Amino acid sequence: MPARYRRTSVPVEGGDLAVGVWEPDGDAVGEALLIHGVTSSHLAWAHIAALLPGMRLVAPDLRGRGGSREVAGPAGMAAHAADMVAVLDAFAMDAPLVVGHSMGGFVAVVLADAAPDRVGRLLLLDGGLPLGVPAGLTPEDLVATVLGPTAARLSMTFADTAAYLDFWRAHPAFARDWTPELEDYFAYDLVESGSGLRPATTYETTAEDTVDLHTGAALRVALDHLRVPTTLLTAPRGLLDEAPGLYAAERLEELLRLYPSVAHREVPDVNHYTLVMSPRGAEEVAPDLLAAAGARSEEGAGR
């Protein structure tokens, strides 16, 4: 049964959050809230959604991104978590599986602490546990260290959509994985800027979230309180398709010792982006997502 895709909006403090929804025509076999990364949008989930036509998948654009770029007010993990509660309310989602990619994983962890009765399970995709970043960096250096060229492009202007697609075609992360879904995803990212186009996410929003994620208290407190069944999937390569990925082996071992309740699996032959935004990555992740949502449904039925 193919999934139907639509876009809607949910009121939050400061404006309306854009939300993409994939849902079957009949009864859903499960549901999940999908939270994207720091400069991304809900269309990052298109490949995974295509493999889960029987599920209801609710995927917001975080404030400051995509169709939610004009939502006013501060960002940060706590603000995003509050927005996610509003989305759960709007769709009458009762403690579903929450899936977070990259920064979305950190938002998911903070959400599980802020509203523990609203989250059934967590599936973290290359995010959610602290990265190994040197202490004492300035905000600018922190953003550059964590995001590198991903942050630099936020200040760039492109003549047209084709020029932006050419920029990403040359990116090493997508050398083997260019798809029509990616073209839709990148085109959706663009907004008018003078005589050209620029990414919807601003550098200022990215910096605010990146600094809060690494230096704020919300994530550390949330991890100390983590009680929700949690699985972490990691990619062996990073944002530029380099090895190691965001979680080098020694760092990951340390984190799994600190948080022994977190189950872990490395997804082979993907990078930080293609873990989610490629057919290969989606084929690996979709069964984990379906299994986690099914586990949640069985737990709910047993209560």
Rank of each mutant, 00 (worst) to 15 (best):
A187W: 02
H214V: 08
A170Q: 12
F174I: 04
A200W: 01
T215M: 03
D209A: 08
T179V: 05
P199A: 11
T215Q: 03
T202N: 08
T206C: 14
T206Q: 10
V191W: 02
A218C: 11
S193R: 13
A200F: 00
H171V: 11
T201W: 03
A218T: 06
F174V: 13
W178E: 01
T201N: 09
A173M: 10
E208K: 03
P199F: 06
R198D: 09
F174D: 00
Y203D: 02
E181R: 09
A187R: 15
T201Q: 11
A173L: 03
L197D: 04
E181Y: 07
D184F: 11
G196W: 01
H214W: 02
P180S: 06
Y185H: 13
R176F: 12
A173H: 00
T206M: 15
Y185W: 13
D209N: 14
R176S: 15
D184C: 05
Y185K: 10
D209H: 05
H214L: 11
D209W: 00
L182C: 03
P172A: 06
D209V: 13
E192M: 00
L219G: 01
W178F: 00
Y203N: 00
L219D: 01
Y185D: 02
H214G: 05
F186N: 07
D209M: 10
H214I: 01
T205D: 10
W178T: 00
G196K: 10
L213S: 04
D189P: 09
Y188K: 05
T215K: 07
L190M: 14
T179C: 00
D184Y: 10
A218S: 10
E208S: 11
T215V: 14
E181L: 15
Y188G: 11
G216K: 07
T202V: 07
A200E: 05
D212M: 08
F174E: 02
R198T: 14
L197W: 06
A170C: 09
A187Q: 09
A170M: 10
S195Y: 00
P172M: 05
D189E: 13
R198L: 08
F186K: 08
A175L: 13
H171D: 15
T202E: 02
A207V: 12
F174T: 04
P172E: 09
E192A: 15
E181W: 09
T201M: 11
L197Y: 09
G196F: 03
T206W: 01
P180F: 07
V211A: 04
D189L: 09
T210C: 15
T210V: 09
F174C: 04
L190W: 01
A217C: 09
T210E: 13
Y203L: 15
A217F: 11
L213G: 02
G196I: 08
L219F: 07
T205N: 14
E204V: 12
P172N: 04
A217S: 14
D189S: 14
F186P: 02
G216M: 03
Y188D: 14
H214D: 05
S193F: 11
D177W: 03
A207L: 14
E181H: 13
Y203F: 15
Y188S: 06
T179R: 11
D177Q: 06
A217K: 14
A207K: 12
D177I: 00
L219A: 02
V191Y: 09
T179L: 06
T215P: 02
